Amino acid sequence: MIFGRYIKAESSKVFLISQKVIWLSALFMGILASIPKILQLRVSLTEVIVDCIIAFFYSLFVWFYNLYTLPRYANHAITTRFFGARLIRSLLLGIVVMGILVIVNQLLFKDRLIGTMMLMYQFRGILINLTIYMFLYLLYQSFINRIIAIELERTKSDHIEAQYELLKQQVNPHFLFNSLNTLKSMVEIGDEHSADFIVKLSDFYRYSLESRKKDVVPMQEELKLLEAYFYLLQARFEEGITLQLDISPEHKKTMIPVFTLQLLVENAVKHNIVSIDQPLKIELISSDNNLIIKNNLQLKSIPEPSTKIGLENINQRYLHLTGRQIEVRADGYFFTVKLPINEHISH
């Protein structure tokens, strides 16, 4: 950014102008404002110094007033408009301040004409005000553009990470290996449900391929994926796993990040004992504006390694789409994940 060097970098989200820039620019304005007096050649050194001091203090006022009325310091929405209420307030207040400085000058130098001075100084003050306001406006817009660019890069990075995690889920070799082993066993014993198992396995992987480029899908579509996925699990664990659904029809029409439910069920199976003696019971319940996924907690004696990338992935996607985080709670008996339902999520 062309103006980046004038902005302090203590924090990437805090807009601060270097004090050196403010004071040096105010001094420059004071010297610049006294040049017309110097060119007259017949003015005294005192008049030149007075002009310089008035322009210097006026420039300082304009700098700090406009700086502290920015959204960084005040509760105002960020605006990209140059002409607006802030500029009008700055000009009007600047006229008052310049008038006070001229009156003080008149009181100190009684032989000067206040009427002529007032018009000259007010015109000079408006030019100084507009110059500083424009420079500050450009600095602030440069800062906002930089913040937006950083957020876009962060969002892109999060999206790439999420896509990578989804890709790993879609081609999970362990799940495919277990499913094929289950299918082999079913075929060997002549299980009449072998054909259904093949269909569900095909449905699951077809959906995985079709959804790999999507961010969100209707919950009803996600539930179809979960149904196919759970059928494969149940064929493997039989009565060792159950799934109970209690989701209202209106919530089924809302959007949900793709693979969310499948990933949560997979986590439950990964970290808990699943057997006929100790069945794993998973519940999906919609309540108010939340979707609750709960399972009884019966952790494996030798836990599988966990990176917690899956839950963090889901949390980041919900934070990006709804502005709300997911809630995760384990109380010793149940592991519960609460997902926010937002009807305004779109494709």
Rank of each mutant, 00 (worst) to 15 (best):
I22R: 03
W23I: 07
A26F: 01
A26V: 04
G30Q: 05
I31L: 15
A33C: 07
S34P: 06
P36K: 01
K37R: 10
Q40F: 07
Q40S: 07
S44E: 03
L45T: 09
T46S: 08
I49L: 11
V50L: 12
D51G: 10
C52H: 09
C52N: 15
I53C: 12
F57Q: 05
Y58D: 11
L60R: 01
L60Y: 04
F61L: 04
F61G: 02
F61R: 00
Y65W: 10
N66K: 00
Y68D: 15
T69D: 13
L70I: 05
L70V: 05
P71H: 07
R72Y: 10
Y73E: 08
N75D: 11
N75E: 08
A77H: 13
A77Q: 09
R81N: 04
R81T: 00
F82R: 00
A85G: 03
A85F: 06
L87E: 04
L91M: 08
L93S: 04
G94F: 14
I95V: 14
V96A: 08
V97D: 00
G99P: 06
L101N: 11
I103G: 15
N105K: 03
Q106A: 15
F109Q: 14
F109W: 07
K110E: 14
R112Q: 15
L113H: 09
G115T: 14
G115P: 11
M118E: 10
Y121A: 13
Q122T: 13
F123G: 15
I128R: 00
N129W: 00
T131P: 05
M134Y: 11
M134D: 06
F135Y: 01
L136P: 07
Y137C: 15
L139W: 03
Q141Y: 09
Q141G: 13
S142F: 04
S142I: 01
R146W: 06
I147E: 03
I147S: 00
E151Q: 08
E151Y: 04
